[in-house]
């Protein structure tokens, strides 16, 4: 069953994030992909995440396909103008990549090529419109394509954004622009997330909760202080603290597993997107503990 079929069938879907390395040594990444095979519905391949230059998303999506994993091409508007975006989308589609996640992209100033010229010729909402057009056999300038694409396009949303209302208004625009599914920024407070979902459920889209595994108290505090749209509640920080330094990671894995189970059992959303950030090899363990495999 494809990722699209899985989501649309009502199955509780699991995706995991794969971050391409910076350099040509892909051994670890390929090994992690092997571990994920058969355990997740699809893998998201990040696009120069945090504006740090790495192997491009498109190439790694192709490698994932060859491994028998279904890729979700993350595509940001930071590095390419509308010509390059459309060309890459056509290229991805003919290589068999059928899912695309449309994002604006972290600003160049966050990354490791600070002198780069940020592009943002279009942004996430407009990129969704472009994908919709390509699917309908036309490019952005309404020129007929020799063969349409067949993408299943999604977008991102930040349920813990503060203030929230402008973010919700943008969410609605993304739905209008053609997004079929959403993968959220990391959520930790499931009560807050339920409130967000009661809003999101008014729209005909699938929503997957983003989960970032907590490795330590320090990481949780870092997320709270420096990462926009992420709020780790005190009780989770205390849980990590009580576990002690040596057992913090173990506790973090358990928290993620417990949350997946709750999200699924209470039918809060349509799936989860696990961002393990360097611990992709732990994803199968999390899924086991969550009772999904």
């Amino acid at each position: 069953m494809s990722f699209r079929q899985a989501l649309e069938s009502g199955k509780f879907v699991v995706t995991a994030e794969v971050g391409p390395p910076k350099g040509t040594d892909i051994a670890t990444m390929l090994h992690d992909m092997d571990l994920l095979k058969g355990k997740v519905d699809a893998v998201n391949v990040t696009d120069n995440q945090s504006a740090v230059m790495r192997i491009c998303s498109l190439a790694v999506c192709k490698l994932a396909l060859e491994k028998g994993l279904e890729p979700i091409l993350q595509m940001t508007c930071r590095d390419r103008n509308r010509i390059a975006l459309q060309a890459d989308l056509l290229g991805a589609n003919v290589l068999g990549i059928k899912n695309v996640l449309c994002m604006t992209g972290d600003h160049v100033s966050a990354g490791d090529q600070k002198g780069a010229k940020p592009v943002y010729d279009v942004e996430s909402v407009q990129l969704l419109q472009i994908v919709e057009k390509l699917n309908n056999g036309k490019d952005m300038s309404d020129i007929e394509l020799k063969g349409a694409t067949d993408f299943y396009q999604g977008a991102v949303v930040t349920p813990e954004a503060s203030p929230l209302e402008p973010q919700l208004m943008k969410f609605a625009k993304k739905v209008k622009a053609g997004a079929h599914f959403f993968q959220t920024q990391a959520v930790y407070n499931l009560e807050h997330f339920k409130e967000f979902m009661s809003h999101a459920r008014k729209y005909p889209v699938k929503v997957m909760a983003g989960l970032v595994v907590l490795k330590s108290v320090g990481m949780a505090k870092f997320l709270n202080n420096f990462v926009p749209g992420i709020k780790v509640p005190d009780e989770l920080i205390n849980e990590l603290k009580d576990a002690g330094k040596e057992k913090a990671l173990e506790t973090g894995l358990n928290i993620t597993a417990r949350q997946i189970k709750q999200l699924k059992d209470e039918k809060i959303c349509d799936g989860v997107h696990i961002m393990a950030i360097g611990m992709e090899d732990k994803v199968p363990l999390i899924l086991e503990r969550a009772g999904l495999i």
Binding site: R78, P118, Q126, V156, A161, K170, Q185, P228
Partner: peptide, 11 residues
């Protein structure tokens, strides 16, 4: 970023 349709996730 010159965004035309609302805040990004970085806000």
């Amino acid at each position: 970023k010159g965004l035309l349709n609302g805040p990004c996730g970085g806000m």
